[in-house]
Design a protein around this nucleic acid. Structure first.
Length: 391
RNA sequence: GGGAGAAUACCCAAGUGGCCAAAGGGGGCAGACUGUAAAUCUGUUGUCAGUGACUUCGGUGGUUCGAAUCCGCUUUCUCCCA
């Protein structure tokens, strides 16, 4: 695409969508993209890592802290806020941004992941998914229409289509049927969304499924792309498959995705996946990993993962990561963090959550810089060597 | 001074003849965690070799084919009465 044509496309997207992608640079060495995603609540630089705040809070962190560590966009969750406190309350509060005091971008997941993670207490049907509430066992039906309506009430800048995040392993017939149902659900999501006034300020992203079958991934992509949407996501990965499989699935679809729209790899959060995903053309990632493993006593460092709760750190008065300049590493030692975690002190969870989230957000900043310098493959190799990944 | 009761592994605590190296908690140690039912979950926790052996239930001496469990003595602790 010529410079002029891509500029035209950009202008077109800007006027057409509440959320649009501004490409800035493609890494000559890796083909990875750096850009900016513009939303009604500010812009965020890509590639980026999005911390997850399922229940309208990034667990253990205040919005100010999440902001300070550099996150430009966070996630929240349709299913959980629907169950509690109820989307009507969030709407009444002035929608999510006001409710949780976060003035940057927000993305809400549709509840599609809960179709996967709450598999013991739900039934999938064509109309939607019947859930038994994990809170009180009450029965509920989440449909594509309802998911979109709830997400309208929540008011995130980016909302997700209601999909089935299919399990792994799963046979081809199941995956094919599942992805086709997800496609039909997408049509219903789009119809509901486009008919609503909220479409002016919220952008609906479609989700590519297809399990671990490259041709089914392509089929799903084709169906999703038949809707002109402001962004596209890849779902149903990082569900237990080998890394090579995940990479292969990305390679099956990202080259066919439009270059003027953001691409979001859902639920992916280890450093290797972030880097390899970016190399394969992904712009956005989210994951509970940094906050969850943080709360459970594990930290990520430039030299690899550490279970900082382990005894070997009892007298280690160095920072968690000597190369990190987050609040935790600037002020506290491994020994202190370990002590807090062992003692069950809340502050310990806060320090590890803060560090881990900073680590991934900051990693993506470095990745972005490497893209601009056309040296992302070199950066990857350097990072992996220090982190302890064997390539 | 008299009487009653209790002592079990790092801690608390089950167990009152064999199925007991000994339940269950806690603590310790280790691991897992990927669009969050997760400040959670799993494994392990006498010793040594690892399908077995050895040493353990305050100490000691007995009874018995067999004892953490029954008996004698003893030590310590708690409570009650003087």
């Amino acid at each position: 695409m010529s410079e002029l044509k891509s500029q035209q496309k950009r202008d077109e997207n800007e006027s057409k969508w509440p959320v649009w992608y501004e490409p800035l640079h493609v890494c000559a060495q890796s083909g990875a993209r750096a850009g900016v995603v513009h939303t009604p609540h500010g812009s965020f630089e890509t590639p980026t890592f999005m911390p997850v705040g399922t229940q309208a809070t990034v667990k253990a962190l205040s919005p100010e802290e999440v902001k300070e560590l550099g996150a430009g966009i966070i996630l929240s969750n349709t299913y959980h806020l629907w169950m509690r406190p109820g989307e009507d309350i969030v709407r009444e509060a002035g929608k999510l941004h006001r409710f949780m005091n976060w003035d940057r971008s927000i993305l809400t997941d549709s509840g599609g992941f809960q179709v996967f993670s709450l598999s013991d207490s739900r039934h999938i049907k064509e109309e939607g998914v019947h859930f038994k509430s994990h809170l009180d066992g009450s029965r509920h039906l989440l449909t594509p229409e309802l998911s979109i309506k709830i997400q309208h009430a929540l008011g995130a800048d980016i909302i997700m289509a209601f999909d089935e995040c299919s399990p792994y392993p799963a046979d081809r017939a199941y995956i094919k049927a599942s992805l086709e149902r997800t496609t039909r659900w997408l049509e219903r999501c789009v119809a509901t969304h486009e008919a609503a006034p909220e479409a002016a300020e919220q952008a609906l992203f479609g989700i590519v499924q297809g399990g671990m079958y490259a041709d089914l991934r392509r089929q799903s992509l084709e169906q999703v792309l038949s809707h002109d949407l402001p962004g596209y996501a890849i779902g149903g990965l990082s569900v237990g498959e080998p890394a090579e499989t995940l990479y292969a699935m990305l390679e099956a679809v990202t080259p066919l995705m439009p270059s003027d729209k953001p691409r979001y790899l859902m639920g992916v959060g280890t450093p290797d996946y972030l880097i390899e995903g970016t190399i394969r053309g992904i712009d956005m990632f989210d994951c509970v990993l940094p906050t969850r493993i943080g709360r459970n006593g594990t930290v990520m460092t430039s030299q690899g993962r550490l279970i900082v709760r382990d005894q070997r750190f009892a007298r280690d008065f160095n920072p968690i990561d000597p190369n990190c300049d987050c609040y935790t590493c600037r002020n506290y030692s491994r020994a202190y963090v370990r002590h807090l975690i062992k003692a069950g002190e809340i502050f310990g969870l806060r320090l590890t959550s803060l560090h881990n989230t900073y680590f991934l957000v900051n990693l993506m900043k470095q990745v972005r810089q490497a893209i601009f310098e056309d040296r992302l493959l070199d950066f990857r190799d350097e990072f992996f060597a220090a982190y302890g990944y064997v390539k």
